[in-house]
Design a protein around this nucleic acid. Structure first.
Lengths: 123, 123
DNA sequence: TCCTTGTATAATAAAATGCTTGTATAATTG
DNA sequence: CAATTATACAAGCATTTTATTATACAAGGA
């Protein structure tokens, strides 16, 4: 299952968000997800398996508990995949300036950064 | 269909990459996809419909042709969604420095930027 | 040892996805 | 106007995904 397919499911995205905050015991994840999605423990466990198998999460056994933690590598890959499209929303500036402007835009601006009329970026 | 589900399909990712390069006539997209995936014109048309409906592509009618172009908004949203995970692979530096380091890491470093042992980021 | 707790796995049903073939529609050309 | 070209839509089917229920299994406590 490719990274995007993994991220396609809202339950899995929720789990990843929880893991981004801190590592969690399987039971805690079940609780969070059940509270918001109302699905069974088995269903959550299956999502956790997908996250493990696809490299988004790691498990550590602690007696009869399983502690899940985030592995951000696949997310980084998604981020890298997006690189080829960034020119569409990043201002087209010089090397260093681009680096600076980039993060700023992304964190603050919610409205469109008015780049090109989206025909395609100037490069 | 959510943005990640849309991106989950390799044919659709391929189409988006083609559109990132330049706008294209439907027929050209069909040709590209058929060359690489060997699926029918109808199948490609269905993927194009999904891209339209989910906001990733726009169409312009040109006589009996349809010209597709990229709409990067949904991709930007994915990029923004990733923000909450960036601390895992971005060095934890001061405001401005972070902006600078960020793009650099992402474009050059292929090996892991050895941040935390991924427990979770410091800040 | 037996029960409880925490978690995973198996079987299966239901829903969603992606493809195919066939056809409709619109504009273009002979 | 009939034929052709470019593209979309519809129905049907196979595959995949996600959930359910039932069960297994390991660790710890009574």
């Amino acid at each position: 299952m490719n990274a995007f397919d993994v991220l396609g499911d809202p339950v899995r995205r929720r789990i990843l968000m929880a893991l981004a905050e801190s590592e969690r015991r399987s039971g805690d994840i079940v609780e969070i997800v059940q509270g918001e999605f109302g699905i069974s423990q088995a269903a959550v466990s299956q999502h956790l398996k997908i996250l493990r198998d696809s490299g988004f999460a790691r498990v550590k056994v602690d007696e009869q508990r399983r502690i899940y933690s985030l592995d951000s590598r696949p997310l980084q890959e998604v981020d890298e995949w997006l690189d080829r499209f960034r020119a569409f929303w990043e201002p087209k500036l010089g090397a260093l300036d681009t680096e600076i402007a980039r993060g700023k835009k992304m964190r603050q601006t919610k409205g469109q950064p008015e780049g090109q009329p989206e025909g395609q970026p100037k490069a």
